[in-house]
């Protein structure tokens, strides 16, 4: 397959178009993904998440730099939100990484969420495969600015970096479930601001209290200072970069990488099932107008969602029930 070959040869234009076709749900794109799938699984995938304005893109920019110094080729997928009103999106992560735009060893692609709620785009899994098949050594996936709940990144990344900034709340925030649980590495960015040390202490207390199995990974809490002192920023970034690699090595040496791989594949299968089963049914319901009439029924209280879903399953998924 022509397109698959070009991807494997690292052709950026073809790769970016394929990612576009995946985003736009063009059926032919699936065939190309099937074709390149055997060539995936080599790249190290690093997720970066955290609240809006925490400094995720700037940190990715720094990590691109450290990776390039090690002569690694780099892919970046940067996700920003789609407007729920117009379907449009402003994709502005790349602005922090523009110094790498002419480097042929770096491929940066922005994605809009297009309605996905987990902090990523539903195209992200296949987009990672594309960059992986291109032969990128390391792929950084930057989520949208997240709150507490958007944890989908754990299904895609080997290593998850959670970026926090001082002044976001008291220590109760640190023991809540969700995003605070998914970090393999915590980064306190803007650490030259007031409250950074306090936040670091709180996080370390939280980590001490959490149950880490013997021989397990204990998430480090790193700090990054970056206000107008490039040499400090670079120094802190090098420590982060070393930790990212240490974590990856740890996954390999402790055989935990198999678990992560399984988690990733299970998620992919889930997504594929949704794509092949749920979406065609939804399309059918929309096309036939059944969906509208069902909503009417619900409004009038003539039925309930569970009964309607059972009705749909009986009608469209014969053999399963």
């Amino acid at each position: 397959m022509e397109r698959g070959k070009k991807i494997k040869a690292g052709d950026i234009r073809t790769a970016s178009r394929l990612i576009r076709d995946i985003e736009d749900s063009i059926p032919e794109a699936k065939a190309t993904i099937k074709h390149i799938f055997p060539y995936t699984g080599k790249a190290q995938v690093v997720g970066i998440t955290g609240s809006p304005g925490a400094g995720k893109s700037t940190i990715v920019d720094g990590l691109i730099e450290t990776s390039r110094k090690k002569e690694q080729t780099v892919g970046v997928l940067a996700v920003d939100p789609t407007s729920p009103f117009t379907g449009g999106a402003t994709l502005g992560d790349r602005i922090r990484m523009q110094r790498h735009s002419e480097d042929i060893g770096v491929f940066i692609r922005s994605l809009a969420t297009r309605g996905s709620l987990g902090g990523l785009s539903k195209a992200v899994g296949d987009a990672i495969h594309v960059m992986d098949a291109m032969g990128k050594d390391i792929i950084f996936v930057e989520t949208v600015g997240t709150g507490q709940q958007e944890v989908e990144i754990i299904h895609y990344a080997h290593t998850v970096i959670v970026v926090l900034v001082p002044g976001m709340g008291d220590e109760i925030q640190a023991i809540k479930a969700g995003i605070m649980e998914i970090a393999d590495i915590f980064v306190i960015n803007k650490a030259d601001r007031d409250g950074a040390q306090k936040l670091q202490r709180e996080l370390m207390t939280m980590i001490e209290m959490s149950h880490i199995p013997p021989g397990g990974w204990k998430p480090p809490v790193l700090t990054i200072r970056n206000s107008f002192k490039p040499e400090e920023f670079e120094h802190d970034l090098q420590i982060l970069s070393a930790k990212v690699h240490e974590h990856y090595d740890f996954l390999i040496s402790s055989d935990l990488i198999g678990d992560r791989q399984k988690r990733k594949r299970l998620h992919e299968l889930n997504e594929a099932i949704r794509f092949s089963i749920l979406e065609p049914v939804m399309e059918m319901l929309i096309r036939t107008g059944e969906l509208d009439s069902m909503v009417e029924k619900l409004v009038k209280k003539e039925s309930d969602p569970a009964s309607l879903a059972e009705e749909i399953a009986r009608k469209y998924l014969q053999g399963c029930f």
Binding site: T82, S83, T86, G88, A89, L91
Partner: peptide
């Protein structure tokens, strides 16, 4: 963005 485009 408001016109529904994805803008980089």
């Amino acid at each position: 963005r408001d016109a529904g485009f994805e803008v980089i």
